[in-house]
C-alpha cells in the first residue's frame, strides 16, 4: 500500500487481467488424463497458479488422484511439483502475493469454498516435508502436537494415538523407551519417520510427501519406502520424487510435469514402459532432466 502509486497500479492491472471472469474456469480445456475407473479423492479443474503476476508456476492442471493409492509426481527441477502438492493443503496461502484460478476439489468439495476451515483441511490433508522438521520438543510432544492443537486433551487418548501413529510410522520399536527425549536427538531417518508419524497422528485421509527421502541414506530411504508401502492400504499418498526408481518401486500412478504443465498421468507401469507422450519418454530414458 505504501509503495509507489504506479507500482500498485501496475500490479493490480496484471492480476486483474489474469482474473477476468472468462479465464477463471476454461471448460474447453480437457484434462490431460483422468483415472476414471478409481474413486477420485483429489481433483483439480483448470488450475493455474501464480506466485505473483509474473511467476506463472502452474498452467492448466487437470488431475485426478485416486483413493488409497500412491501417486508420484516426477519432472525436472522447477517444473512445479512442489507447488502443485502444496496447493492440496493450501500451504501456498502463506505466500502473500500468490493466487490461483481454477478449482481444487477434495472428495468433490472445493477447498476454497466459503466457510472452509483451513485447520480442518490441513488435518484432513497431512504433509511431510523434504527436510525433516521435528519440533524442538520431546518425541511424544511431537507426535501428540497435531491431536492437541485439534482439541484432544485426554492424556490416555493421546497416548493411544501417539503409539498407533509411531507404529504406523515404523518407529515405535526404536523410540518407545525414550518418548520424553528430545526429538532432535534422533537420526535423520528416524526424524523423517517421526514427521510421518506426526502427520499420521492427525488421522488424515491424504498424505502429501515432498521428496521425503531425498536427504537420506539408502537404508533410511528403504525404510521410508517400506513405510509408504504399508501406509497406502489406509491412506491416499501423493509423493514428489526425483528418484525415478523410487517412483517406479512405490507408486501406483505417476504424473509427469514440465514447465508448470501436466504432461501425462497414468499407471506407473505404463509411464515407465510405454508413455504416450514423447516428452515423458525422453525424460524417463534420461535424455534430459
Amino acid at each position: 500500500m505504501i509503495e509507489t502509486e504506479s507500482g500498485v497500479f501496475l500490479e493490480k492491472t496484471k492480476k486483474d487481467e489474469i482474473l477476468t471472469p472468462e479465464t477463471k474456469i476454461d471448460k474447453s480445456v480437457k484434462p490431460v488424463l483422468a483415472m476414471s475407473n478409481e474413486k477420485i479423492v483429489i481433483e483439480t479443474k483448470t488450475l493455474d497458479f501464480y506466485y505473483n503476476a509474473d511467476a506463472h508456476a502452474l498452467k492448466n492442471i487437470n488431475i485426478h488422484i485416486p483413493d488409497k493409492k500412491v501417486t508420484a509426481f516426477i519432472g525436472p527441477s522447477g517444473c512445479g511439483k512442489s507447488t502443485l502438492l502444496r496447493c492440496f493443503n493450501r500451504m501456498n496461502d502463506l505466500i502473500s502475493d500468490a493466487f490461483h484460478t481454477g478449482e481444487i476439489l477434495i472428495n468433490g468439495v472445493d477447498i476454497y469454498k466459503e466457510g472452509t476451515r483451513l485447520e480442518d483441511l490441513r488435518k484432513q490433508v497431512g504433509m511431510v516435508f523434504q527436510k525433516s522438521n521435528p519440533f524442538p520438543m520431546s518425541i511424544w510432544e511431537n507426535v501428540a502436537f497435531g491431536p492437541k492443537v485439534n482439541g484432544i486433551n485426554d492424556k490416555d487418548e493421546l497416548n493411544e494415538i501417539v503409539e498407533s501413529a509411531l507404529k504406523q510410522g515404523d518407529l515405535w520399536r526404536e523410540v518407545k523407551d525414550r518418548m520424553q527425549n528430545s526429538a532432535l536427538d534422533l537420526s535423520g531417518g528416524q526424524q523423517q519417520r517421526l514427521c510421518i508419524a506426526r502427520a499420521l497422528a492427525n488421522k488424515p485421509e491424504i498424505i502429501l510427501m515432498d521428496e521425503p527421502a531425498s536427504a537420506l541414506d539408502p537404508i533410511s530411504t528403504g525404510k521410508i519406502e517400506e513405510t509408504i508401502e504399508e501406509l497406502k492400504k489406509n491412506y491416499t499418498i501423493v509423493i514428489v520424487t526425483h528418484n525415478m526408481q523410487q517412483a517406479a518401486r512405490i507408486s501406483d500412478y505417476t504424473a509427469f510435469m514440465m514447465l508448470g504443465e501436466l504432461i501425462e498421468v497414468d499407471l506407473t507401469k505404463k509411464i515407465f514402459t510405454n508413455p504416450t507422450q514423447k516428452l515423458t519418454e525422453d525424460y524417463i530414458t534420461g535424455r534430459f532432466g
Partner: peptide
C-alpha cells in the same frame, strides 16, 4: 519457517 510450516500443516492455527 520449516517449524511453523510443520505446525500449520498439522492443522494448528
Amino acid at each position: 519457517e520449516s517449524l511453523s510450516s510443520a505446525s500449520l500443516a498439522l492443522g494448528a492455527s
